[in-house]
Amino acid sequence: MIKVIQPGTHSTIQDGGRINFRNQGVPIGGAMDHHAYFLVNHLLQNEEFAPVIEFAINGPSLYFYGQTFIALSGAEFHVKLNGKKISQNTPIHVPAESTLEIGHVFKGNFGYIAVLGGFKIEKVLNSSSFNPFLLPSAKLTKGMQLAYVKTKFKNTEFNSRVTPVHDKFCRTKMDVYPGPDFNLLSLEQKEKLINQKYYVAPNSNRMAVKLGNVPEISAPEIITAPVQPGTVQLTPSGELIILMRDAQTTGGYARVLQLTDHAMNSLSQCEIGEKYEATFHLI
């Protein structure tokens, strides 16, 4: 068992998300950075879609009753095990009665903690991912007890260490497809949309990322139509919004572009603020 000493700013349980319920209005949800999510489970040879902890801004402090292994990845953050600094992107042995303290995230946005065997968390609609309507309990709170699946650690060369997922957090180049409503734009508007240098604006979260430094373009509202994580919406007032994992399943703004999976993962780690550049690259 693990006890939550401090939950951190916004720490939730996440996995691959709720597939197969989107026609019933259920957002897919799941880890923001799938690359880092798969990596932490891979390092421990967990099941591919085992639940992990995702945190942002300030990470949690956890107390481990028994000995086990953990893996940390995603953003870069201050982390100590029993007062000593430990590495990310490699399996870490945690002795019994240990305290793991994760401090401030200083590079990127979302950090991930996997435990050997994976967290044992209730599933609602085939997923343990936090959702305010379906699974509000999958959010870390002070004093909460977290169980995990007991299993033996197999150390191999294969999973002993990996290179970090994102080497550059400050320049995010997003590969994009033309969206279903791309052709609502004139050639000139398309060029402005693609060639602009953006940044991630405040008020970005697990539902949507808002872009700053937008060009002077806009698109009329559309009749409500399907959207998915990675859909880039252009509003009548000229805002650009990129839908993220917790977005609704349908939307009424023009879908001008669609990010690739890889671009979604990179964007999730692009920090808020004008000094970090985000650009589109049409494929």
Binding site: I19, N20, F21, R22, N23, I28, P180, I223, T224, A225, P226, Q228, T249, T250
Partner: peptide
């Protein structure tokens, strides 16, 4: 399509004049 091709898909969304298969 969602029933006859269920082996290929992880879900779908219907709206007024469009549907998406994932």
């Amino acid at each position: 399509l969602s029933k006859s091709l269920s082996d290929l898909i992880d879900g779908f969304t219907i709206a007024y004049h469009e549907s998406a298969f994932y």
